[in-house]
Nucleic acid binder design. Structure first.
Lengths: 108, 108
DNA sequence: CAGTATCCAATGCGATACTG
DNA sequence: CAGTATCGCATTGGATACTG
């Protein structure tokens, strides 16, 4: 991050930056997911980008990464308390998008 | 836009894309602003980028652009009804950012 | 399964200068 | 005042192949 924000919205957007973090947050909202499950949940994302986004979100304290030592490997991602609070704050935005899907998709 | 969204949040984020649209929306929330006023309100943005973002938001139906024929030129930007509805949906996110400013700024 | 490693393309963004 | 025109770098994202 390393910047100063002019308002809360500014800061929130910086944390949510990029095309995918919102979706990842949303997908983890229901409960923990393994890497592969998450990749399927966030349709269209590449492995590389998913990892990058997850690492950033871990770094921001939004996501917790838990490694279960076993074969085959199992890694679970979940929201932290902080992540859940952001998730809740995003809910109205999600509803807005839901309500206006038609209109948004019609934008040239 | 020209894509299909997997959920409302996805769609909303597509509309809000980029680093500045949230701030512009927020700045116009209080009422109409002229180009120059807006440029000062959204501190740090370049003229070029501000125009680009405004055009996109006009195109999305979020912002209305009104030209007053006079010398010197006067152009006012305001939120449409659609823009105001999005603004309202973003409010909780703005509050979240406000409440967590310290923490967000501390992210490495 | 859960990642890394490369490489490449797109585009976002910033700075600056100029104009009706 | 309200834009346009250029230029160029930095970041982001995508495709694919490989590994512990």
């Amino acid at each position: 991050m390393k910047r100063t924000y002019t308002c809360g919205l500014d800061a929130a957007i910086a944390v949510m930056g990029g095309k995918w973090k919102g979706l990842i947050l949303f997908s983890l909202g229901e409960g923990p997911l393994r890497f592969g499950e998450l990749r399927r949940a966030v349709a269209g994302i590449s492995e590389r980008v998913l990892i990058l986004q997850l690492r950033e979100m871990e770094n921001s304290g939004l996501v917790h990464r838990e490694v279960h030592q076993q074969v085959p490997p199992k890694v679970e991602y979940s929201l932290t308390e902080f992540g859940r609070s952001l998730n809740a704050a995003m809910a109205p935005l999600g509803e807005w998008g839901e309500d206006n899907l038609q209109r948004i998709e019609a934008i040239p």
